[in-house]
Design a protein around this nucleic acid. Structure first.
Lengths: 205, 205
DNA sequence: GAGTATTGGATACCTCTACTATCTATGTTA
DNA sequence: TAACATAGATAGTAGAGGTATCCAATACTC
């Protein structure tokens, strides 16, 4: 398959594909001559994945590259991979600009009895959200978050349940990534609809 | 309060405040002379809100403006307001580029017994996600989403429960907005941590 | 085997977003 | 009254995410 075929079958322009190649999102094709290279179904699949992550979820090109690199490196290690996706990716070490709420997040995690890495970026996200909401006068603390966390546990069970029975580790890793990242807007959309419904119910009384 | 005080107390530079004024994110101050205007605590509050929406949640300036406008217009109408936030805002009419999955989303909503607007943008988000995941070979349908939706119902109950006992309608509207939009990254962070925990549990067996 | 089209690779350019800087006429403050 | 702040206008900037063009080498088409 040449670049024009790849373009036609993916709906992505040749210049954009070249851009992705330059940016290292897409691995180079197999060179058959000085000005010719062969691409295969892996490339097509990767290209669709790129468009899904940048389009649906709005990941930046550089974040997408990190996620895809991690996918390749940790293909056998679904457990590690699950900690890597989303905007809060930061595969390497992060600055960790500690919010004062970090301790409260730790207490929450302890109360939940969760076994999660101390360095998980999601912890910082939680602390930052708590801090921001409080500065705006919204009273939230770990007791507010606890019931949400219990629901998150059940969500995670559903997520992991969907990976059962996938033998190929690369495929399992890729599916984990897709379910984690691409399902996010869908879950938020469901929440929005549920809020509307719940609001209607309450006003009906 | 003059613009420099507003800047100092909010941590936002004077030039950026001027930019927000120009863009209509921040209402103009009360003019006291040709080159002087007074700002008050409302402006400070609004400014903090702007930074929270654009910073934490990453909303664009134009989306933020739409959300804030909606906040003012529908202050008394929390029910309507709840349908407006997030990246999928689109307060006005949207193009509605129907995915073929729209019918499936309708069936799901019906099965759930939810009372939600036919035009809710979250429906399109769901349909688009289904479509994208399928094109990548992930088998998802409304039966997959149903248990997630049940959890979303319980999340929405928690959300709405936090608005109880707020008398002032503008305040209730603002809090609804904050909880809907700013809690999103936190909920996704909880899900990530829960996934990690669940993954660890399963591997321990 | 000639002529036309396509390709990989390099470089320049473009559009949009979110600011940032500068200028001017007017005000305020010490 | 001199130094400094302010509103409002206009222009400039940096980064992201492409897009367009050029070139020499190669591949199909007759």
């Amino acid at each position: 398959m040449r670049i024009s075929d790849l373009s036609r079958r993916s709906g992505v322009s040749v210049t954009t594909i070249k851009y992705y190649l330059r940016e290292g999102l897409l691995p180079p094709g197999r060179q058959t001559a000085a000005t010719q290279a062969e691409y295969d179904d892996q490339h097509l699949r990767r290209l669709r994945l790129i468009r899904a992550l940048t389009g649906v979820r709005g990941l930046s090109v550089s974040t997408t590259r990190e996620v895809l690199d991690a996918l390749g490196e940790h293909a056998g290690d679904t457990h590690t991979l699950l900690g890597l996706a989303l905007g809060s990716v930061r595969v390497g070490e992060e600055p960790a600009g500690d919010a004062p709420e970090a301790g409260e997040v730790r207490a929450l995690v302890e109360e939940l009895g969760w076994d999660v890495h101390e360095s998980a970026p999601a912890r910082a996200t939680l602390a930052e959200t708590l801090s921001t909401l409080r500065s705006l006068g919204v009273p939230v603390d770990r007791h507010t978050l606890l019931p949400y966390a219990r629901l998150a546990e059940r969500t995670a069970e559903l997520d992991l349940g969907q990976l059962d029975g996938i033998a190929d580790p690369l495929e399992a890793a890729e599916r984990a990534l897709l379910l984690t990242v691409l399902l996010e807007p869908a879950l938020m959309a469901l929440r929005r609809l549920a809020q509307e419904n719940e609001s209607a119910r309450r006003h009906a009384n």
